[in-house]
Design a protein around this nucleic acid. Sequence first.
DNA 1: ACGGGCAATGAATCGCAAC
DNA 2: CGTTGCGATTCATTGCCCG
Lengths: 361, 361
Amino acid sequence: MSLPLDTLLDGDCVETMARLPAGSVDLVFADPPYNLQLGGDLLRPNASRVAGVEEEWDRFADFAAYDAFTRAWAEAARRVLKPDGALWVIGSYHNIHRVGAILQDLGFWLLNDIVWRKTNPMPNFKGTRFTNAHETLLWCARSAESRPTFNYAAMKTLNDDLQMRSDWMLPLCVGPERLKTDGRKTHPTQKPESLLYRVILATTRPGEVILDPFFGTGTTGAAAIRLGRHYIGCERDPDYIAAARARLAGVTPVEDPALLITPSRRSEPRIPFGAVLEAGLLRPGDTLHGGRRGAIEATIAADGSLCHGDQRGSIHKIGAAAQGVASCNGWTFWHYRDEAGQWQPIDALRERIRATAKGRD
Amino acid sequence: MSLPLDTLLDGDCVETMARLPAGSVDLVFADPPYNLQLGGDLLRPNASRVAGVEEEWDRFADFAAYDAFTRAWAEAARRVLKPDGALWVIGSYHNIHRVGAILQDLGFWLLNDIVWRKTNPMPNFKGTRFTNAHETLLWCARSAESRPTFNYAAMKTLNDDLQMRSDWMLPLCVGPERLKTDGRKTHPTQKPESLLYRVILATTRPGEVILDPFFGTGTTGAAAIRLGRHYIGCERDPDYIAAARARLAGVTPVEDPALLITPSRRSEPRIPFGAVLEAGLLRPGDTLHGGRRGAIEATIAADGSLCHGDQRGSIHKIGAAAQGVASCNGWTFWHYRDEAGQWQPIDALRERIRATAKGRD
DNA sequence: ACGGGCAATGAATCGCAAC
DNA sequence: CGTTGCGATTCATTGCCCG
């Protein structure tokens, strides 16, 4: 059975997911009902009424009912995930702890909890609590053994060359982005595309498949299309389905796929040090220098090993031994004198080989 | 039986709390073990070893054992709380969801989850996840019917006359505040007093009683004394007890608690260029122009880097490289064509984001 | 005394392909 | 399956040493 890519599937997500092949999806993004347990109407200081979440889909008899619901969709999601797949869930303090504990019990492995800090949260009108200014996302692998995708370099670049933190400052979905029907919001909890942009860019690769069991008005689909990923959506409500279909018809992907990938050293093919010799960029008998002011010397052998005193081994092993440390990246530790007489790390020679290799294919 | 005020009680907290009278305490602040489940050593890029939490008290056989432990202390805490009393718990993604779900199951009523955003978290050294830059606190009433104390005005004043949000930006406990024994940290997870100041100032009144079942080196006691509240601490470890007693002997109440609090910084939030993409103000594949008459072109990648010929990097780096100069402010160098067809510096888009992002800190 | 440079460090579930 | 070895990977802050 093949996957219904870029499709919105009408119906209950547990049943829908059960019909999909096991181990077929790269990422699940879930925005389940929060079980808000709201009481009566909430009035602003000017006596206007706050439009809360009053839909039938957010009403559960008790915690046990909510837990059973959570366990059902989470198990179904786990079944369709590939072994190295991952799951994101978004929630608030009303539900996220129940969800988190259940995910752990099911074998999911928490990788991070992410705080979505809202730039423009709704104030606490009654002055009885702290302004509830954030929501929480859980990012977890299918199991502790999974090797989930994390585009570290892309996140670092996106954050001006600093590691992306676990707290994200993003605005609510308002203005033109917010879908409206007859002047009222189409969906009470539409998420901003910026949130999904970051989730998808961080934890999937172009062309992969993202399933959203609570598709709503299709924010996940919109971000997936833009970023060159495939989506599968589940949704029961015909109004949401119609709104999502109309919305997604107008979304176009980025044209140049190269723009979707951040180059990282990790994903580059490996080049053994011997290739530098074979390319004639260094010769057996040449001397490399490492350490402070290049005080550590080593001689290159014909097989690409280094000789330092009576020790002999790889550039990494000798670099570590010469410094008396456990490990060492020989590519950045050892230096040679280039044509202009400048000291350069031998990594520059590896780069040169990579550049010519790319030119060939 | 009268309460042992301002006392550190030696022994297991469940047994100790069981000996205290029911309904006698105004607030419980709990910093339980997080059940970190660490693997082997973690080395920094410079090969130095990260001092993790290796203490026996953070080791549990499995989730079930941790849950049983949590249920035991939470039930004991609930018994000693007054009907309108409240509980704070701090934790990380490793444990906080289990704790939160158990508290809900026991009848506690969640009021807020608070995010302690660390100004100076430890980086993710291996580049495998988002920097774990926050911890979570749960604030809950003893029951849904409780009327817990919340000093709304004090919090608003503390926050420059804006409602205090659910995300707090505070530094780690380092420097002179961090207790040391023979040059090494006395306790692996000592919390900053600033965190306890805010908790106690927000949710207790002067003269009330705060119980801390995991007293450690007594941060809760120190903040309580300073703020004119009473503390009761439970602790098993004799080294922690000795350190706490010595510490608390030197703490004196202050007359004006407002003087204790450092106002939060109001510096402009830093906006990375990636935020402009996530906000949809520009899109991957769009072209920016710079230099005289916009002769220099560059294409935007999905991660917020610019592509110019075979070069790729930040708006600043590519701006500098394209001009052949050492440095460049990309925000003012690069221009885009706005809705009216006018060329505008991309800094205008950053301003637009700032205008909506009235974010604190 | 002041400043620059360098080292230390913080609740951390921290790699992966080839053999 | 386990073992081996390449080689990728850090931010904010404090404090000490030295000029």
